[in-house]
Design a protein around this nucleic acid. Structure first.
Length: 578
RNA sequence: GGACCUGUGGUGCAGCUCGGAGUGCACGCCGCCCUGUCAAGGCGGAGGUCGCGGGUUCAAAUCCCGUCAGGUCCGCCA
């Protein structure tokens, strides 16, 4: 017995029973998946462990119920002629002359564990420990473990050093809302849980760890979504004496290795696109490249239009294949959706054999009509949707409609990886007229655009880059500012005073005075990557104990009130619920 | 903060438009029968505040209002 899974109680996992010599007497342990009794002389017991199911034959009645924990000792035997079950890995054999030892009795579970029917997620989460016994959760969490191992191996192979950074950190009021931890020893003062190890890893660069990584838990007190939980896991990396291309190379290696481990196929490439191209062609900074419906620019054709609805800086369109059959109410719903996204309206054109069908069709000139009919190679039976507005708005609205009308489920192959580069440094102006940082304020501007920092900040590109998979943002990174003069210039652009910068980031700026190497980094979400590999539509399917959308845990009841004693220790007074 | 969807024995559904007795289906559960089943089979049985509260009505699972829970999305996530 040299099976790695053998223990004092069991010899092997059930899935390996078929690999052993017939006639061997072995013990296996697990849960009763099913009992089938045939009178007082014969009963079958399907025994489940994490590897699968094996059938045990008992020559008599059997006093066990579903989910009892048992140890079965039996003889590995070939199944009789005609009783082979090809649907089981172990279906050619069975355990005979079994002794069944009950290790633990069990009540009937609140839902069936055989996955023949979908079970409401709230019920699954309340009894997550039972849900975890189900095959899909076993597969998902084991897939996740393999991905983690592949990521570690890839970073180790690239000579990165894993360093753990603190969970109790100082408040840095910027970006995502932080989870706050009251201090017992310092009345009225607080730690926060890190939204990411961002500052810590930059300090590690100053500290001479020129290649750092960590599979790091990050916490953000923001509303939850299918792809967002309060706490999530990132592969966090940072390196010194590197460029953007170096970092993209390190990350690509890790992601491709993980993809190969998870799917069995190494992706051929990761495409690259600038942020401006992404917005222009897909109306988003995280394009889903698995399908077409690319945004077309009709501005030139409508430059001199008489139609008021199209008198705008930009006219853009998408083609919806076979969309001409959409009902009027569906088109109205699309228009409402466009308006909800900020558009003044949505123009639709059914493409027919004899021209366009639309309330607006009769107002168009022949050349305008022709331009719409040609969008994206439109043919009769298609629908063309047109938005005329400011460039960014027109792009974003059509990008959202494109996804709503064409996007497959995120985990549906193929897997299309994409680097998006040259993000803008700033996104719009705040109420005081100061530019708003698109990333954190330590992001290095594009060297070609440094001169624009004062004169035209909104045109400044940054050295920031995102990794996208099937329309989900996997992660982002940037080259960091390591020079005090550039950092001061960025803070000035953002309207952050010297005093403010000192109080928020003083320890980082202080560290940079003592010799900061040029450095850059990246972080990407392991939950999202594994969810896509697992074929799941939400990251909850690859997290052992996730929260609901309202941030609650139906199993533990968290969040909960705490006792008067604990409150006193923490110098807190409970809020009155209202 | 907002929009939309869902809530019916333990589980998954149907019933809701168009109000008329908790009606139905599948799985599970309990009991009995069954010596080759594996989505076992046969017979019998238990199990419900139709999420909760209010309103309309002679009458509400069904219509209306509110509320709670779950989900998807917008805002938010530097």
């Amino acid at each position: 017995m040299n099976d790695v899974d053998s223990t004092s109680l069991r010899d092997l996992l059930v899935a390996r029973v078929a690999e052993r010599e017939l006639g061997s007497r072995v013990s296996v342990c697990g849960w009763v998946a099913k009992r089938r009794e045939h009178g007082e002389h014969l009963a079958f017991l399907d025994l489940r462990d994490r590897s699968g199911i094996v059938q045990a034959v008992v020559p008599g009645s059997l006093d066990v119920r579903s989910e009892y924990v048992v140890r079965v000792t039996g003889t590995i035997s070939a199944r009789p002629e005609g009783t082979v079950n090809e649907r089981l890995v172990t279906g050619r054999v069975e355990l005979t002359d079994c002794e069944v030892e009950v290790l633990s009795v069990a009540e009937a579970p609140p839902f069936q564990l055989d996955e023949r029917v979908e079970v409401d997620e709230a019920v699954r989460l309340k009894y997550r420990y039972l849900d975890l016994r189900r095959d899909s959760m076993q597969q998902n969490l084991r897939l996740r473990a393999r991905v983690n191992a592949a990521l570690r191996a890839a970073m180790d192979a690239q000579d990165f050093c894993e360093v753990e950074t603190p969970l109790l950190w100082a408040p840095t009021p910027e970006g995502a809302r932080e989870f706050v931890v009251p201090s017992r020893l310092h009345a009225g003062e607080f730690y926060v849980l890190p939204q990411s190890p961002q500052i810590a890893k930059q300090l590690l660069m100053v500290g001479g760890f020129d290649r750092y990584y960590q599979i790091a838990r990050c916490l953000r007190d923001e509303d939850l979504r299918a792809d967002r939980q309060f706490e999530f896991t990132q592969l966090d990396i940072e390196a010194s004496f590197v460029t953007q291309d170096d970092i993209m190379g390190f990350v690509s290696r890790a992601v491709l290795d993980a993809a190969e481990v998870a799917t069995g196929v190494r992706p051929e490439r990761i495409d690259t696109m600038t942020w401006a191209e992404a917005l222009d062609l897909y109306g988003t900074d995280k394009p889903d490249l698995r399908f077409g419906m690319v945004l077309q620019d009709l501005s030139a054709a409508f430059a001199a239009t008489e139609v008021k609805a199209f008198a705008a800086p930009v006219v853009k369109a998408i083609r919806v294949p076979e969309g001409a059959s959409f009902t009027r109410s569906r088109l109205d719903a699309l228009t409402d959706q466009a308006k909800a996204l900020g558009a003044k309206g949505l123009a639709w054109f059914r493409v027919g054999e004899d021209g366009l069908d639309s309330p607006l069709a009769r107002f168009l000139t022949e050349s305008e009509s022709a331009a719409i009919s040609r969008v994206d190679g439109a043919v009769a039976g298609d629908l063309v949707l047109v938005v005329a507005d400011e460039h960014a708005l027109a792009c974003r609205v059509l990008g959202a409609l494109r996804l709503a009308l064409g996007a497959p489920p995120v985990s549906e192959p193929p897997y299309r990886y994409l680097w998006v580069t040259e993000f803008p440094m700033f996104e719009g102006l705040d109420d005081d007229g100061n530019p708003i940082a698109a990333h954190h304020p330590f992001t290095m501007p594009h060297p070609d655009d440094l001169a624009l920092m004062e004169s035209d900040p909104l045109r400044v590109r940054s050295q920031a880059y995102d990794l996208v998979l099937n329309g989900w943002e996997l992660g982002s990174g940037s080259v960091r500012i390591h020079r005090a003069d550039i950092q001061a210039q960025v803070f000035r652009s953002l309207g952050i005073s010297d005093e403010e910068a000192e109080s928020r980031f003083g320890f980082l700026m202080g560290a940079f005075k003592y010799g900061a190497p040029p450095h850059a980094g990246f972080a990407f979400g392991v939950d999202r990557l594994v969810a896509i590999f697992a074929g799941a539509e939400t990251i909850r399917e690859v997290i052992a104990f996730p929260k609901t959308q309202s941030g609650a845990d139906p199993m533990t009841g968290a969040p909960k009130e705490i006792g008067a004693r604990q409150l006193r220790d923490l110098h807190l007074r409970p809020a009155v619920k209202g």
